[in-house]
Design a protein around this nucleic acid. Sequence first.
RNA 1: GGGCCUGUAGUCGAAUGGUUAAGACGUCACCCUGACACGGUGAAGACUCGGAGUUCGAUUCUCCGCGGGCCCACCA
Length: 814
Amino acid sequence: MQLISMQSEPLVKEKSWDKSFEPPLYQTWKEDRLYSFDRDSDKPLFSIDTPPPYVNTPVHIGQTTTYVLMDMFARFHRMTGHNIIFPLGLDRNGLPIEMAAEKKFKVRLNNTEREKFLEMCRTVLEESSATSTDSFLRCGIAFSSWKFGPEVGDAYMTDSPEYRAVTQATFIDMWNNGLIYESERTNNYCPGCRTTLADAEVDYIDIPTKFYDLAFKVKETGEEIIIATTRPELLGSCAMVIYNPADARYKKLAGKHAIVPLFNKEVPIKEHPIADIEKGSGLVMMCSFGDLSDIRFFREMNLAPIYSIGVDGRLNENAGPGAGLPVKKGREAIVAALQEKRLIRAAKDIMHRTPICERSKDPIEFIAMKEFYAKQLDQRDRMMKMADDLNFFAPESRKILIDWINSLSIDWPISRRRYYATEVPLWYCRKCEEPYVPPKGKYYRPWKERPPVKACPKCGHTEFIGEARVFDTWFDSSITALYILGYGRDDEFFIKHQQCTVRPQGKEIVRTWLYYTLLKCYLLTRKQIFRDAWINYHIVDNTGNKMSKSVGNVIDPQKILDQFGAEPFRLWAATEGNLTQQDFRCSNDRIIAAGKSLNKLWNVAKYVSMFQRPAERPKKLSPLDQWILNEIHGIAMESRVGFENYDFHNPSIRLRHFLWDTFASHYVELSKNRAYNSAGNFTKEEQESALWTLHECLNIFLRVMAPITPFITSKLYEEIYGADVHAESFPEPSGEEKFEVPFLTSELEEMNSAIWKAKKDKGLSLKDEVTFASIHEKFKIIKHDLVHAHTIRKLEFGEFKLDLPATPAPKAEH
RNA sequence: GGGCCUGUAGUCGAAUGGUUAAGACGUCACCCUGACACGGUGAAGACUCGGAGUUCGAUUCUCCGCGGGCCCACCA
């Protein structure tokens, strides 16, 4: 027989995978045209509306994990023939930046000149933006571009002039379509800092306060009723007295009126479920505004609010004896007045959970201010329809959006009295006060610029006052999907691609980012902006707790990358759990464990690369080879279906099992003799069949794994097949034949295990021979491989039975 | 306090209205067998949070309780 040498030094030289292989690869990818967006491609578009991270702190491990998963979406779809928009975006507007600037320069927004303050924000941004993208780069994220610019596919920042111009353009459109109006609303207000606060700047603490029982009179009967309150200074704002419908004590008061003490004002008494029978006397005076529940109540009851606190944080003329005093002093004055008239029946010391200013620690007041609103309540049905039509991954997350839509009670307040954000693009005529809206397309700063008109279109006056307010950051970030598709900058492109494929985001911002994006994009385009929504849970620390700076359990992705490199981290991210269904923990041990699979792949590839790949597929494939080809084709198909549904978790577990068990332990072991064929036990055709199959399996496996582990697959594919795996196509389900194989994979594995176990039980080495074996007839067709793999002297078919040679006595057990 | 989600071996996690509930990490034993000791072959380890119900049968469906997560509200 002619012996053929098809074996040589492995093409893969290094002993194992090493993280030092990564930097040259990601540097290449950064510049590679393969990943850049091709505007004129006629491939179908796959666009990912990446969540732009805030740059005031470096990205954390949770963000890097979700970006790694998004990168898998992008890489997979690129291999299935899509043109990809996978943009790098940075969110740089708003409160977090301002707070960082205030801290760094030890200033307050409200006592710093606007221009100077913005300069401070920019300084903070300069310092922080660079470190944020480095983790992404090191993770192997293949963004469409790393260069910041105005073109579709370019990296963007939400505070760039072109982004802000688009934000303003959306406002101008909405304004012109009558979707914006101005109305009075209640704000958090800090009397100490003399500024409105965002909810994020409000803390809650328990502070001691007095709970006063005040004596009211019932107008119709003259009887005295007791109302308990911690806010007697708001008596003048009392507009109604309520009790719980289930409270028998007060049924008799229905329809009657209460006389407010000191003010001698008459207010209705009504039933309302928000009154708690157990609290105080069970009777509640409803004022504008003691707290946010009052606000909601006034809105619901359609009551005209009476404001007792002004923008200066002092009580006003509506507060009677407290007028002109700061809140605290005013309360004392009113209490004194009540005491004098003997209207306080009791005063109890209680601990009261009070909203305070995060920085000055002053109690928050709620005061009314005029703000802009975007209409949303009349879109509720439309929003419900979209919630229904949108594909949610996982489907359970749809409920979050539906619940939110159902709970909407007010329109969307979009203006803020802040600085580092997109300016509301309006001017007002100094004479007739008519608002002037500029044309779309430019970035406007009305607080420091003249409007782009000479004179007021209404009265002809030439002096204007620029609007000082800015937008809520959600007004900016709710257009990322439009922005990345070129809306307002490349309308030719946008007209062809009006729907973004997928929105990946955290579940905690469904009610904000997802909702506002759907709403705003609908108002502007009358279309549903997303096809899919991929909603993720969180990465928690290794004990299952949420990471937070104050607890000090935050895991820095840079450290993970320094220690392990990106590839084990990526494989871990795919394998560890399904992030659309629950949180998962970040632990070094498990990332290290994932790394072991890389080494396994490395060595399998090294083994396969020792053999020459036959130039053509052999006409006749050995039965064992047909079996493993069925397996790899099946798993490639399953992976494809999984990946298309954003599931990398289940496929990666199946792939790992294929690699370690099915392929390495069973196929490679059984086919090894045939592949080497050093003793000439097999024909040339049989050997070639093995070699071709080994390569076919490895080749497909590398292509399937490429989206998950781009580094190792790239390096192996390049070294063995001389091509860029990421430019290859994902294994196709069609065209792969299905072979008839008489045994199941599990049956084969069990049979092998039974032989291995028998040898082991006898204290034999696995290469020791089996003197006689009887196995099921279904394995007859792979007889030759089995005989050589297990070193079987005599093989028959029938009931399972093994005869092993006499062995040295088993080692004594202790 | 309200709504939604969730609870499987020490840890992480699959699966199913029905024979002994995957797999991984960790643990233990033996083995350096022509790619891999970051390996191989085995072993031990879970009455699927507690209780009740539906069912011939529940880990899987329903209800209650307990624990965790997210969002909302924060109590006159």
